[in-house]
Design a protein around this nucleic acid. Structure first.
Length: 459
RNA sequence: GCGACUAUAGUUCAAUGGUAGAACACUGGUUUGUGGUACCAGGUACGAGGGUCCGAUUCCCUCUAGUCGCCCCA
């Protein structure tokens, strides 16, 4: 969608109407969002509320507790956990120095911060597993596109303290349920196991010697990766690298006995749960802290492939950050993309309750009394729409009509003096004058009846 | 970080080297205190800066933002 720059000159309003030479401001306010940042406008909130509601009920049903952590962390928390030689750390992290000289960064994902909090607050003493849910913004300095923003929303689930692969399956089932409850279809999991640190050692040496033998066919990034992070070559999207990778030894074939068993049982759980998945040997993910299970959640609707989320097991992360050994697993969901998919498929939105009554007022005295009447109705749980700022009855009724209310209450000068209210049926157009004390029972009675269906102005 | 395209009212779109129109939306009116339709009226825009030109929204450059592809991922 096209955007525009709008500059507001502070002096503009006071400037006379005579043609003045345009003043150039030194520091004009640019009414435009910074790159990759977007507003979630009221018109879209129905989708977002729906997502939040589904998440809210899901995390509770699966025994998670909510945690909120800061958007800002010390930068080395991320470099230590995510890995120095990853794209995220390389070019996507928003980091800067504070006035006090601290190196800080906006979180590019949640798990690092949550792991920090877990250790810092001694959650290791809690009964295991510790299940934590979080939702909020994360930041990556990247080229924006639809569904990819520099500020984006994630929901994050982490489970600490259990090694069993049933937790891996549980977490995937949870993700699948959430997306299912949001009515998203064509969801498929991509699954892989990259092994533990032990079996990865021998695998890596195999992999390196393989890639060294094909060194000349790799792209320049991958030649570098060969020395720094050979696993990531498998993830490269360059045609020639894909070709080389296709003949490379696969992690799945070189897992140690424990890891093999772990992966095998995970797949059995997934089969049992009838969760659609596909084993993807080239899936290694962009964060170094993963071990064993890694997965991504793809939407395959309309032949397109869109990643809605991903996660995996990070058995060594807590230990690496200074905690006690704590096998863990987690995943994140990209909410912007989920909303995008919901819009595309016309998925259900949350609908706020709509008022069925409009309160119109005419004249000073009535206006004064109307606000009180509004409060009396609101106290009784009756939702009332109004446009108190307007004087004309015509425009108020027009508004009432647009809102599609069933009843309009009219209080004019006469009614205000008589302590009465006109109750106008917006469907039939008929109206009657009611004494104030009889108003509430009458409205309650009307609210209970579901007869009002046929709208007068139903197009 | 690399490449391509785009940028006009709140929205969706026009036109034009001599400063811009429509539709929808919005506000008000078509007699005094009554909404669906109709009619009338009104306001708001050339993303920013620089250059070429007598003159640029229109041509050129830079910047900014958006969209798409790559990279990466959410």
């Amino acid at each position: 969608m096209p955007r525009k720059n709008v500059k507001v000159e502070a002096s503009q309003k006071s400037a006379s109407k005579e043609a003045l030479p345009k003043k150039k401001l030194k520091n004009p306010i640019v009414l435009q969002n910074p790159r990759g940042m977007k507003d979630i406008l009221p018109g879209d909130q129905g989708y977002w509320t729906q997502v939040r509601r589904v998440l809210e009920s899901s995390y509770q049903k699966y025994g998670f507790q909510r945690i909120d952590i800061p958007v800002l962390e010390y930068a080395n928390l991320f470099s230590r956990s995510i890995g120095e030689d990853t794209d995220i750390m390389d070019k996507e992290v928003y980091s800067f120095k504070t006035k006090g000289g601290d190196e800080v960064a906006l979180r590019p994902e949640f798990t690092a911060g949550i792991a920090r909090s877990y250790i810092q607050h001694g959650m290791n003493v809690l009964p295991k597993p510790v299940k934590l849910f979080s939702i909020g913004q994360a930041y990556r300095y990247d080229r924006p596109q639809e569904g990819r923003y520099r500020e984006f929303w994630q929901a994050n689930f982490d489970i600490f303290g259990e090694e069993d692969s049933i937790l891996d399956a549980e977490v995937m089932q949870l993700a699948y349920r959430v997306l299912g409850n949001l009515k998203l279809k064509d969801i498929q999991f991509q699954v892989n196991s990259i092994g533990c640190t032990d079996c990865r050692k021998s695998y890596l040496s195999l992999l390196v010697s393989y890639f060294k033998s094909k060194n000349k066919k790799l792209c320049k990034d991958c030649k570098r990766r060969l020395g720094t992070n050979p696993l990531r070559i498998l993830d490269c999207k360059e045609d020639k690298c894909i070709q080389v990778s296709s003949g490379a030894p696969q992690t799945v074939d070189h897992l140690c006995e424990d890891c093999h068993e772990h992966f095998k049982s995970l797949l059995e759980y997934l089969d049992e749960l009838e969760i659609p998945y596909s084993i993807n040997p080239s899936l290694v993910r962009g964060l170094d802290y993963y071990s064993r299970t890694v997965f991504e959640i793809w939407s395959l609707a309309e032949g397109k492939r869109l990643s809605l989320g991903g996660g995996g097991r990070y058995d060594k992360l807590i230990e690496n950050l200074g905690g006690e050994p704590t096998p863990s697993i987690g995943f994140g969901l990209g909410l912007d993309r989920i909303v995008m998919e919901m819009k595309r498929t016309n998925a259900k939105q949350y609908e706020a309750p709509k008022p069925r009554i409009f309160l119109a007022q005419l004249g000073k005295l009535a206006k004064r009394k109307s606000l009180k009447l509004f409060a009396d109705l609101e106290k009784n749980g009756i939702l009332v729409a109004e446009s108190f700022g307007r004087g004309g009855l015509k425009s108020q009724l027009r508004t009432a009509n647009k809102l599609g209310v069933d009843i309009t209450l009219i209080v004019g000068q006469k009614e205000a003096l008589d302590e009465t209210v006109i109750v106008k049926n917006m469907v039939s157009g008929t109206q009657e004058t009611v004494a104030k004390e009889k108003l509430l029972p009458l409205i309650k009675k009307i609210m209970k009846s579901k007869l009002v269906v046929l709208k007068y102005n139903n197009k």
